[in-house]
């Protein structure tokens, strides 16, 4: 899974410089003071342009600053109480984001695991198919959005044309035009773009499971399902945890895909938290947008924390 595993060439450097002298004992060697200079450029850039602004977001979040005027007032927790109790736009975006998140996490995890199970062996055809399935992950989300805009186009789109062609006209739909379901269709486009990427993580996890475990399970009379349930599933738990955690963060960060499919600013039925913050910001409500971004950060931290707890519970539970 790490870069090094995929890069056997790295190892060639090792023997040439092999152990000229091994310091006795396990004591940590003295740190050359100049080593501290190496992280310095990164730390300086990071503190000035990343950490500083992150802290400032908290500062702005208690103001009504519009981003232009030099005068603004401190509104205390006003922004926050409005976001949490009295902001339909924010609540709508949160609801959409939760729907999007649930569909993407469940569908993408299941699909990428299925594909990985089918393609875990390193045969020529499996390797080629893995490469094909990974391909959409390198396209920009705006490009993916345009591909799916045409898939979903109610009049000329591929899906409705195919459905019409095979006589399933009654399944034809408005897709993105149907406000109550639009977000699910965007979720599907997201799964299309990234299932192959997460498949690779599962393949790496599956290939680490020793073959003997399957053999002995088979000797014990375990069928395909039992082998999956009692050998594969528990042993790929670490990969599953990574996939679920990554997919969750990815679902909060989906931004380009929403703007590509939902317009800029996106229609209400497709607004999620990241696009809501952006729209508030472009309406010159810097203070309020900063408050939204703080709430956003808290939500992500909370979800990640709960997820980690859940993973730990299930791993101890089995």
């Amino acid at each position: 899974m790490s870069v090094s595993e995929k890069s056997p060439a790295v190892r060639t450097g090792e023997p040439r410089v092999a152990l000229r002298r091994n310091r006795g004992g396990g004591r940590a060697p003295k740190v050359h003071p100049a080593l501290w200079l190496f992280p310095l450029p990164a730390v300086v850039i990071y503190v000035i342009f990343f950490v500083g602004p992150t802290l400032q977001a908290f500062q702005y979040s208690v103001t009504d600053w519009d981003g232009i005027s030099s005068a603004f007032s401190n509104v205390g927790g006003g922004n926050f109480s409005r976001i949490t109790t009295n902001d339909d736009l924010f609540r709508g975006a949160l609801t959409n984001n939760v729907k999007f998140l649930l569909v993407v996490v469940i569908a993408q995890t299941a699909l990428s695991l299925l594909l990985a199970l089918l393609l875990q062996r390193n045969s020529k055809s499996s390797t080629a198919l893995r490469a094909l399935f990974f391909l959409p992950a390198i396209l920009s989300s705006v490009s993916v959005a345009f591909v799916w805009k045409f898939m979903y186009d109610p009049n000329f789109g591929l899906i409705n044309q195919v459905l019409g062609g095979v006589g399933l006209d009654r399944l034809q739909g408005a897709f993105l035009g149907d406000a109550s379901k639009a977000i699910y269709w965007v979720a599907l486009a997201q799964v299309w773009a990234h299932a192959g990427q997460l498949m690779v993580i599962f393949v790496a996890g599956l290939q680490q499971i020793p073959e003997e475990l399957y053999e002995s399970a088979e000797l014990d009379g375990a069928g395909t399902w039992a082998r999956f349930r009692y050998v594969t599933w528990p042993l790929i738990a670490p990969a599953t945890a990574i996939v679920v955690a990554y997919t969750t963060i990815q679902s909060f960060k989906a931004f380009d895909l929403i703007l590509g499919l939902g317009g800029n600013p996106p229609k209400g039925s497709l607004d999620i938290l990241s696009t809501r913050i952006y729209t508030t910001f472009t309406n010159s409500r810097f203070g309020y947008a900063a408050a939204e971004s703080v709430v956003f950060m808290v939500i992500i931290a909370l979800v990640s924390f709960l997820q980690r707890r859940a993973v730990r519970l299930t791993q101890h539970g089995v």
Binding site: P39, A42, V43, Y46, F49, F50, V51, G52, P53, T54, Q56, A57, Y60, G67, I249, F252, K253, F255, L273, S274, I277, Y278, F281, F286, A289, A290, S293, V294, F296, M297, I300, A301, S304
Partner: peptide
Amino acid sequence: FLVLGMAVPAQSNMIPQYVL
């Protein structure tokens, strides 16, 4: 400290970054 930044979504600090 450096890696912690991965947990911060871009939308959370983009506004002060814009001002800066």
